[in-house]
Every structure is written in structure tokens, then in C-alpha cells.
């Protein structure tokens, strides 16, 4: 009797509506996350997971200690941080500046510029990566351009481990500034134009409008975008795969590529790859908590 009441039409409908999405989503995100937690504590190196002869032993935190003793882990982490820095100090200020001048119509051809600045981020990371690799290669226009100034100039951009990250950061700046332009533009459009007009009529200069009205209104978005930049850097894989493959000497690796190489480059080391995965998931979860805290603090001013 009680059971019959429990499964009301509403409850059944809710279940039928939500369940399909939930099953697929949890299979893709939650199951692997649990998987990685367990496997990161093992020395699993391949073979059927659920067979009579268990293909792994539990080794505790061994993978994690091996990971933090591996210099490529720190090189990858450092490169992830460089990517965050180029976003925060390159893409975000540039994107903001572009959005501001386009929104206030301080330049002509605003539609054209918007289209161009966003264009690179719509192209596949593979095409972009290959294109710039060719562009910066010894046969590419960049070499020829530099040699016009200094005929003895040797192109070591993609070979010298010390500087190889620079072209990578340039391509990332080139590719994703448009995304921030779009985000800032959308949020600028939410500011009441009457507010700006009134300030202008009261004699405020363009500069004062920017400092006193626009920057405060967008402060929440700027902070959130900076945190999104961290999540974006964790995402970077395809571009680097096609542009440098993490080379020379794995000096342009990032965490995602480091995980991939750990699993596939030599003999498989799945246990350690899963430990790297756990680190990346934990980093993402920390970001999510920070974003939520900030959104509460700024009172959803970006909504």
C-alpha cells in the first residue's frame, strides 16, 4: 500500500526524465573518477581487470610518491601554470580591452574585428597546432621574416628546450583571446546603457566611465574568468599534441599530456596515470569550490 503511494505519477515521470541523462553522465564522469581513485593505489599495468588472476596489487601511495619525484610532473605542472599566467595577464586584459572598445564603439569595423578575433578558437586544435608548427618551423615564414633582419639567425624555437614553451604560449594567446572577448562583451551588454549615458551627460570622461562604472560592474566576471583560465589550462591537450607533442625532450608537456604519456609512451603505467588523474580531478574540484564561493560573494553580479 505504502509502495503504491510512493510511486506516484510525478515520481515515475521524474525518474524517467532524469535517469537516462544521469546514467550516461555518471558512466562518463563518476565511474572513471571512482576507477582512478582505486587504480591509483595499484600497480596495474594492463590486462583484464576482473579475471581470476588479479592483474594488480595494492601498493598504497607508491604512485603518488613516484609522481612527485618525477621531474616531468613538475615540468608539466609548471607549464600548466604558464598557460594560466598567459590567460590571466594576456588573454583576459586583451579580451577585456577589445570587448570594451567594441562595445563602446570607439573603433570602426567593430563587427569585423569581433569576427576576426574569435575566428581562431573555432578552428580545430589539430589544424591550429599543425599550422603554427609549420609556421614556426625552419621552412616557415617566421624564419624567413627573422632572417630578413639577421641573415645568420637560426630558428631554434621548436628545438631549444629552454624557449620551446614560448611559441606554445603565443599560440594559446592567439587562439583563445576571442573567447574572453565574447564573455566580456556579453557582460558589458548587460550594463544599463542609460547609466553610462547619464554619467557622460554629467561630464564624465570615457576613462572615468571605464574606471567608475564598467570595471566595478565586471569585477566578478574578471575574477571568474581568471579561475576559468585554470580549468582551461587543465583542458589543454590536443593543441600541444599537434603543435609540439610535448617536445623537445618533453619540455612543453602539460598535466593532461603527462598523464597520456605515462599511460602510453613506454610500457603502460596505468596506476601512475590514474594518480595523475586524481590530482587533476582534485585541482578541478578546488576550482569549483572557489568559483562557487566567489559567485556567492559577488552576489551573482555576472548573472
Amino acid at each position: 500500500m505504502k509502495k503504491a503511494v510512493y510511486w506516484t505519477e510525478e515520481r515515475r515521470a521524474y525518474l524517467l526524465l532524469v535517469l537516462p541523462a544521469l546514467v550516461i553522465y555518471w558512466a562518463v564522469i563518476a565511474a572513471p573518477t571512482v576507477f582512478s581513485l582505486v587504480l591509483s593505489a595499484t600497480n596495474y599495468n594492463g590486462g583484464p581487470l576482473f579475471s581470476a588472476s588479479r592483474p594488480f596489487d595494492f601498493i598504497g601511495f607508491g604512485n603518488y610518491t613516484r609522481m612527485i619525484q618525477d621531474k616531468f610532473f613538475w615540468i608539466s605542472l609548471k607549464n600548466n601554470m604558464y598557460i594560466v599566467l598567459i590567460s590571466v595577464f594576456g588573454q583576459i586584459p586583451l579580451g577585456f580591452m577589445f570587448a570594451y572598445v567594441l562595445h563602446r564603439k570607439l573603433v570602426k569595423f567593430d563587427d569585423f574585428f569581433q569576427t576576426i578575433v574569435y575566428l581562431p578558437s573555432i578552428i580545430s586544435t589539430i589544424v591550429v597546432g599543425r599550422l603554427w608548427q609549420l609556421f614556426f618551423s625552419a621552412y616557415g615564414p617566421f624564419t624567413e621574416f627573422m632572417q630578413r633582419f639577421d641573415p645568420t639567425w637560426q630558428n631554434k624555437l621548436l628545438i631549444d628546450p629552454k624557449i620551446a614553451i614560448i611559441p606554445v604560449l603565443f599560440v594559446i594567446l592567439w587562439m583563445y583571446t576571442g573567447t574572453y572577448l565574447i564573455i566580456f562583451l556579453a557582460n558589458l551588454q548587460k550594463i544599463d546603457p542609460a547609466l553610462i549615458e547619464a554619467a557622460r551627460i554629467d561630464g564624465a570622461t570615457e576613462w572615468q566611465v571605464l574606471i567608475k562604472i564598467i570595471l566595478p560592474a565586471l569585477s566578478g566576471v574578471i575574477v571568474t574568468s581568471s579561475i576559468l583560465a585554470i580549468s582551461g589550462s587543465l583542458r589543454s591537450f590536443g593543441l600541444l599534441f599537434a603543435l609540439t607533442g610535448g617536445n623537445p625532450a618533453r619540455r612543453t608537456s602539460v598535466l593532461a599530456l603527462y598523464m597520456y604519456d605515462t599511460a602510453f609512451l613506454h610500457s603502460p603505467r596505468y596506476g601512475m596515470a590514474n594518480a595523475i588523474s586524481v590530482v587533476m580531478v582534485v585541482l578541478s574540484l578546488i576550482l569549483i569550490i572557489i568559483v562557487n564561493t566567489i559567485e556567492k560573494k559577488f552576489g551573482g553580479s555576472e548573472d
Binding site: 563518476a30 576507477f35 597520456y260 596505468y270 590514474n274 588523474s277 578541478s284
Partner: peptide, 24 residues
Amino acid sequence: LLHGSFIIGILLTIESVMIPLFLF
């Protein structure tokens, strides 16, 4: 809880679970 689990997925990138996903 359920809706929240999806929202977490917006920032939780698929790249961070690629090897466990591959094994799964």
C-alpha cells in the same frame, strides 16, 4: 544533488579523467 552533480561537470574537464575513462 542530482542537478548539482551535472553543474560540477561543467568545470570538471573530461581531460582530467581520460586514462580512467579509457580503461573503463
